[in-house]
């Protein structure tokens, strides 16, 4: 019986061993507004030591962004036009960035690199 990995959502493993950063911490950071690996680097120091985790961190980040953007869509659905409450350009830009990042997900971060 092959073990089930795909579509399992959040797992519990260390992404960055040098700093002891788990995938859960990254997902949490995304929930708190992180959208790039650079922000994760600033926040955790992730990828500063050996750099082997950057690829996987990007995968976890993209997966988390995809999940949060899916979760965010229903909340934005009631598009009732309220005068004086026009869509904020800045939030639109962020939303586009999240959307683009989600489209870049080609494989699960769990896929091992074949070097």
């Amino acid at each position: 019986m092959p073990p089930k990995f795909e579509n399992a959502g959040v797992r519990s493993m260390y992404v960055c061993l040098c700093k002891g950063i788990t995938d859960k911490q990254i997902v949490k950071a995304v929930e708190n507004g992180a959208v790039s690996v650079r922000e994760l680097r600033k926040q955790f120091g992730l990828g500063n030591q050996c750099g082997k985790c950057t690829c996987m961190a990007r995968g976890v980040l993209n997966e988390a962004l995809e999940n949060t953007s899916v979760a965010a869509t229903p909340a934005q659905k009631p598009e009732i036009f309220i005068p004086g409450k026009t869509a904020n350009a800045a939030t639109n830009a962020t939303h586009n960035a999240i959307h683009n990042a989600a489209h870049n997900v080609t494989q699960s971060y769990f896929t091992l690199t074949s070097n």
Binding site: P3, F5, Y14, K52, C55, M56, L112, T113, S114, N115
Partner: peptide, 25 residues
């Protein structure tokens, strides 16, 4: 290479299995 270290025993075994399968390939 990159180490795949789990946080709890079940996950650790799954990650070992995954690595071992890749090694075999």
């Amino acid at each position: 290479g990159k180490l795949y270290i789990g946080e709890e025993p079940g996950e650790m075994l799954k990650l070992d299995d995954k690595l071992q399968t890749e090694d075999i390939n």
